[in-house]
Amino acid sequence: MNADQAQVIALQALGWLAANDDLCPVFLGATGGAIDDLRAGATDPAFLASVLEFITMDDAWVVAFCDTAGLAYDQPLRARYALPGAEAVHWT
């Protein structure tokens, strides 16, 4: 997956997250952000990566997002790895 495809999926994820009345406040609380930060972050690949990273923390969130967006369940994580920051993952 290339970065452009990943950003499209991340933007879909951002829209899904912003419309989710239960989960959006959890994301905002975890990041210390405000609702206006979602709009501002839509053009920042690192912010979009954080949205995907958040959603992929829970399988139920991945399934709900992918079912809504019509994506295969592996696409959010593949998109996450195509955006900034994934190259610095250490499993130690």
Rank of each mutant, 00 (worst) to 15 (best):
T43W: 03
L28H: 02
A13G: 10
S50A: 09
W61A: 15
W91R: 10
I35P: 05
A30I: 09
P45A: 02
A72G: 12
R80I: 00
T68K: 14
I35N: 05
A30G: 10
A13Y: 04
G41H: 09
G15Q: 07
M57S: 03
W61T: 10
H90I: 15
A42P: 01
Q7Y: 02
W61C: 14
A72L: 13
L38V: 08
P45H: 04
G41C: 02
P76K: 00
V8A: 13
D37V: 02
N20F: 02
L71P: 00
A30E: 15
P84G: 04
A13C: 06
T43Y: 06
A49H: 13
C66W: 06
L83A: 04
A60R: 08
L23Q: 11
L48M: 03
T43S: 14
T92E: 11
T92R: 08
A40P: 00
M57P: 01
G41I: 06
W16M: 12
A46L: 10
A19T: 07
D4Y: 03
H90V: 14
A19M: 06
A18T: 14
A86D: 04
F27S: 10
R39T: 13
D74E: 14
D36S: 13
P45K: 00
I9K: 02
V63S: 09
T43G: 09
A69G: 04
A86W: 00
L28C: 05
S50T: 14
Q12Y: 07
G33C: 01
A60E: 13
N20L: 10
V89D: 13
A30L: 09
A10G: 03
W16V: 10
D21V: 12
P25G: 06
A42H: 06
G15K: 03
D21F: 08
Q12S: 10
V62T: 08
L83W: 02
I35C: 05
A42V: 05
T68D: 13
P25T: 07
A19P: 11
L23M: 08
G15I: 00
C24Y: 01
A72N: 09
L28M: 04
Y73I: 13
L17R: 11
L52Q: 08
L38Q: 03
Q7P: 02
L14R: 12
A69P: 07
D4G: 02
M57W: 07
L48P: 05
G85C: 05
A42M: 12
R39H: 06
D4W: 06
L17E: 11
F54I: 00
P76S: 01
Q12I: 00
Y81Q: 15
T31V: 01
P84F: 01
R78G: 01
A86V: 02
P25W: 04
E53P: 01
D37C: 07
T56C: 13
N20S: 15
C24F: 02
C24R: 14
A19Q: 11
H90D: 10
L71I: 12
G29F: 04
L83N: 03
T31D: 07
D58R: 15
L83H: 03
F65N: 04
A69W: 09
D67S: 08
E87D: 15
T31I: 00
Q5E: 13
A34W: 00
A42G: 14
L77F: 09
L83P: 07
G33Y: 10
A34N: 09
V26D: 11
A88Q: 15
A49M: 05
G70T: 11
A69M: 11
T68M: 08
V8K: 11
A6R: 00
R39C: 04
T43A: 15
D67H: 09
